[in-house]
Structure formats: C-alpha cells, structure tokens
Design a protein around this nucleic acid. Structure first.
Lengths: 212, 212
DNA sequence: CCTGTAGTAGACCAGTCTGTATATTAAGAT
DNA sequence: ATCTTAATATACAGACTGGTCTACTACAGG
C-alpha cells in the first residue's frame, strides 16, 4: 500500500472533532480535508458515501470514545452517585478545556443533521442507547436491590422477567442521561459549569436516596 | 408605508420555524425568503445585520412563545409535578405533530451557531434563563416551604439573602430544565416520546417528594 | 522489469451560500 | 403634482459547497 495507511482513521477523527464543535452543516469537507491533511480524492476513496458516511462513522467513533471513558469512570467506584458525579466532572473538564466548544459530541450532529439524513439520526440514536445501557448497568449493579419506587406500578402486567426493577432502572437511566445531556447543553450555551454541578447535587434525590 | 407592514414579522416567524427544525447553518436565507414570500432586498432592509440578526430575533421570538405557553400551563395547576407534566405533554405534542422535527426551538441553534456567533449564543442563553426563571417561580410558589435538602451544604458561605431556599430552588429549576431539555433531545433523536414520559415519572423524586 | 492496483493529489463542475447594488413601487407630506 | 422616503423586487457578485473526474505515485506479485 502506498504512502500512509492511517489516512482513513485520521479523517474520521478530524471529522469527529469538527462535527463535535461546529455541527454537521457548519463543517465543510474542505475544512476536514485541510485539517486532516488529505486531498479530496482520498476522502471519496475511503468514504464513497461522502459526507453522510463520514458523519455516521465520526458519530460512532466519538460515541465509542465517550462510552469507554464513561465505563472507566463508572466502574471505578461503588457509589452510583459518586460515579455519575465523576462522569459529570469529566464532561465539565472537556467543556472548560475547549473553551466551552466541546459539549456532547453527538447532540449537535443529532439536532442539525437528523432532519437531513436518516442514517446519521440512527447513528446518534445508537450512541445514546449505548450510553444509556452503560448507565443502566451501573445503576443495576448498585441500586437494583431497592424497592424501585411504585408510583406507576399499576400498568405493568408481567414485563420484567429477570430482575425485578429492570424496567424501572431503564427508565431511571433515561432520566439520568437526559439530565446530563441537558446540563451539558445548558453549560455550553451559558459558558458556565453550574448546570453540571446542579445536576450532580440533585442526583441523589433523583436516584431515590432518602434526601441526598 | 408601501404594500405590507407585516413582512418583517413574517420573516422572523418563518426563520424561527426553519431554524427550529433544521438549525442555523442548514437553513439558507433563500429558503427563508421563498417560504416567507419575500425578496432578498427586503430582508437586508429589515435586517441590516443579515442572517445573524435574523437568527437572534428568531431565537428571542421562539423563546418568548414557548415561555408564554409554559407560563400558561404552569399557572393552571397547584401541583408542581402536575404542572411540569403538562409542560412535558405540550412538548410531546409538538414533537408528534411535527413528525419529531420540532423539539426545542433553541437547542439546535444554540449548538450549531454559538460557535460562530456570540450574539446568537447570548440570545439562546437569555431564553434558557427566562425559562428557568419561570420554572423557579413555579417551584417557589409550591414547594419553597420545604427544608430544601442539604447534601452539599458545606461550601456555601452566605449566599442566600432573602428567601431561605431561593438558591436551592434555582438549582432545582436548573436541573428540571436540564432534564426536560435532555428528554426532548433524546425523544427527537429516537423518534420516541418515552424519554419525556420517563422524566415525567421521575419528577416527583427529583423535586424531593417522599417517593411519589 | 513490468504491470496491476491501492491510494494520493488536485483540478474541475454545477449549484448554493450570504451579501450588495440597483431599480421600481407605493404611500404621506407639501 | 411633486418630492421624499419606506419598502419591495431582482439581478448580480464572490466565495464556498459537496461531489466527480482524471492524472499520478508507490508498492506488491509475477
């Protein structure tokens, strides 16, 4: 093989970075090419699907990276609230380090490209699912032995097979993910980390702790 | 004044709609013009600041509209959880009615334009602030008499002046807003309302209810 | 040595982008 | 009736878009 073999990966990484900070439509291929140091021909050789394919792969890559980091942080502690707080701290560091340009690597693309491209939308949804799964597992590991509330325990016929509160944990993981995503969105827009701290401070109540 | 006098407002409304569904960079001025039935000259007459000014005004308008709707819904009930659930229902209807194109009218622009334009970013931040204020007032009206937790009551010197739980209510409103924003983001990306329902179901726990 | 091919390099295309400049029209004032 | 101004209507400019095309380079196998 001629010259370099890492061109493809470099392009995806560059694209992921730019999409992360600017979104899909605000990022031109020329910018990706310039920043990645590759000519146009190479792009369409490696990505015959063009910008759309590049975005799908970039989203998947960024999602994997953050999922890995999330797993590492969450598995490092026994306290579910503590684990999630460390995840929030990680996101806060990313925000600060990038002058509030790097929030959620998926959200921008999800919002500004899913109207255009169904494949991109699906890729983003898949990433969110994977994150939610990690969070749910984390919660299951530590708080599944609780009665898991019961405010809506009427309309569940016999859905939960194995664990008793599995459906409830999924719901809880959805809420946790939503709160985190919203906090990152607010923090990025306000250029201020306090939304992350607020969510962190209220995680205890959200997870059903007596009062923190 | 010649011809029409509503051209300006029509343009802002059209722009707000398109920015809402597609974001800032994905929406071309030609599309705004075509959909609003106005020529280019009129746009730069009414908005000498060009696309940026149009976006700032569109964001403010959309933010005002939703703030009004939010106020109406929240003032209609005495139960804070019930009120927020109705707000979630409203957002869910908007999503469904628009085939999941209309989520938060601010988020898309906030994410894909605040890297480019400081004025747009500020406009978005202002809208979020206004929404948060509405939520905080709503919470203050109904739950301010609670002890307002205290899991992190160590590093607060003497911030809260007037009401005892005011700072705590602000924090809580931030978390509520974040959770709602995140839920809308997830719902739009997944094309599925369940994140909204999940947040609704957990609002009680989040607001400090015993386990309701 | 020669050829096939993976990959690179960049010119090029048609279309679109935001923004500007120049008419043209309609109303209000004098 | 005329002059001014608010507003509309287009034509146009220059830059940039994503995408295609062809030429070229470097390596591998025969």
């Amino acid at each position: 093989m001629p010259r370099r073999t890492d061109t493809r990966e470099r392009m995806v990484r560059t694209a992921a970075d730019l999409f992360h900070a600017q979104g899909y439509h605000a990022t031109g291929l020329n910018q990706v090419l310039a920043e990645g140091g590759a000519p146009k021909g190479s792009l369409y050789f490696h990505f015959p699907g063009g910008k759309e394919q590049l975005a799908v792969e970039a989203v998947a890559l960024a999602g994997d990276d953050l999922r890995t980091a999330l797993e590492a942080v969450l598995s490092g502690t026994d306290d579910p609230v503590e684990g999630l707080n460390q995840a929030l701290a990680l996101l806060g560091e990313n925000l600060e380090r990038s002058d509030f340009k790097h929030g959620c690597p998926i959200a921008t693309v999800a919002l500004d490209a899913s109207a255009d491209s169904e494949p991109i939308r699906e890729a983003c949804a898949d990433v969110y699912d994977s994150w939610q799964r990690i969070i749910a597992e984390h919660l299951n590991r530590h708080v599944a032995d609780e009665p898991a509330a019961g405010e809506a325990g009427t309309d569940e016929p016999a859905a939960h097979q194995s664990a008793p509160g599995e459906a409830a944990t999924d719901e809880l993981a959805t809420v946790v993910l939503a709160a985190i995503e919203g906090a990152v969105l607010l923090a990025r827009t306000r250029r201020d980390l306090s939304p992350l701290h607020a969510v962190g401070a209220r995680l205890g109540a959200l997870l059903g702790r007596p009062t923190g």
